[in-house]
Simulated scan of single mutants.
Amino acid sequence: MIVTLTANPALDRTITLPAPLAPGEVQAATSSREDAGGKGINVARVIAAASSPVVAVLPLADDDPYRVPLEAAGVPTRAVPVARPVRANLALTDQDGVTTKINLPGVALSADDVAALTDAVVAASEGATWLVLAGSLPDALADTFYVDVARAVRARWGAQAPKIAVDTSGPALRQVVAHGAPDLIKPNDDELAEFTGAALDPADPAGVAEAVARTIVPAQVASALVTLGSAGAVLVTANGAWFCPAPRIRVASTVGAGDSSLAGYLLADVAGGAPEDRLLSAIRYGAAAASLPGTQVPSPADLGGESLTVRSL
C-alpha cells in the first residue's frame, strides 16, 4: 500500500494550442481537458493505473466539482471535508509540448482542517509501505507542515511506520531536509538549483546533481531521485549513484511528468527492484507522461520499449 498526501490539490485545465503562445493575441485552441491534479494525486493516479494499492488523502468539500474527475480516475481517497472548493490551474501547451502554467493560490485551511488532515494521514498510514508527501503548501500552512506530518506518522506507528517520500520545493523542501529525515526526496533540476542557490552545469547535469545530492545523502536524506527533464534522472543513495538518460519522445505536455517518475520509482521499489530498476522505472514513467496530453497519467501499457542503459556514477 502506498499513501499520498496532497494538501494543495488542483483542478488542472489544459488547453492545447496549434502554435506557440502569443501574449496579447487571440488564439484558437485545438483541444482542452480537465484532470484531478496536485502532485500527490498525480502520483496516486499513476499507481492506481498500475493496479497497485493506493490511498490518496486530501482536503475536499463535499460538493466540489473536483470529485468528478477524481472519481473517474478510480483513485481510492480519504477526503477531509473543508468549506471551499479546490483551486484551478491552467496549462497552455503548444504543438511542440512547450507548456505555460498559471497556478492559482490554494484553499486556506483552518487549524482544525490541518489537524484533521494530519490525523487522516496518520490513520491511512497503518500498514503502508510508503507515504508520499507531495506538492506545494497552501499559504496558511507552515513550511514545517511535512515535517510535522512525518513526525506524527512515525510517533504513531514506530517501527511499522511507512517510508516517507517528499516531492516539494522552496522553504518546505529545506525544512524537510533539515528536520524531516525523509527516506526519499524527488527534486527536479530547477528545484535542486533553488535549494542550493546555484544552477546546475548544463554540460554535466548528472555529475553536478550527484555532487549536490551527496551533500545531504545519507546524512540528512536517505536517498534522492533528481529528475533532469530531457537529460534523464539521477538516483543517489548511501550505497551508490546511478544515471539513466531519457528516451527520445515527442513531448505533448511536461505537466505531471515528475510525479509519474516518482510513482514509477515507488512501483519498482514495492516490487522489490534494485536501485537500477527503480531509476529505470522512474525514467520510463516520466517519459510516458510527457508524451501524453495534459495531466493524463500513464499506465504500464504506455511505457516505451526503447532500450535504456543505467550506469553508475
Rank of each mutant, 00 (worst) to 15 (best):
A172Y: 04
Y146S: 10
I164A: 07
P162R: 12
A155G: 02
P138I: 02
R156H: 08
G127C: 09
G127W: 09
A150C: 02
Q175P: 00
D148L: 01
G127D: 11
A140K: 03
L131C: 05
T168P: 02
V132C: 15
L131W: 09
A161Q: 04
W130F: 06
S169C: 01
D148R: 13
L137W: 07
S125V: 07
R154N: 04
A172V: 04
A142H: 14
Q160R: 15
A142C: 05
I164K: 03
G127I: 08
W130C: 02
V147G: 04
D139L: 13
P171L: 03
A140H: 12
V153R: 10
G135H: 13
Q160W: 06
D143W: 01
A152M: 07
P138C: 03
S136T: 10
R174I: 00
T129V: 14
A142F: 02
V153W: 09
S136R: 08
P171S: 14
L141N: 00
R156Y: 03
A172M: 04
S125H: 09
W130Q: 04
G170L: 13
L131T: 05
W157E: 09
G170E: 11
A142R: 14
D139Q: 15
A140C: 10
S169E: 09
R156D: 01
L173I: 00
S125F: 09
A140L: 05
P138R: 06
W157L: 02
R156N: 02
T168Q: 07
T144E: 14
W130G: 07
T144H: 10
G170R: 15
A155F: 00
V149Y: 11
V166C: 10
F145E: 03
I164C: 02
L133D: 06
T168S: 07
L173M: 12
K163H: 14
T144L: 00
L141F: 04
L133S: 11
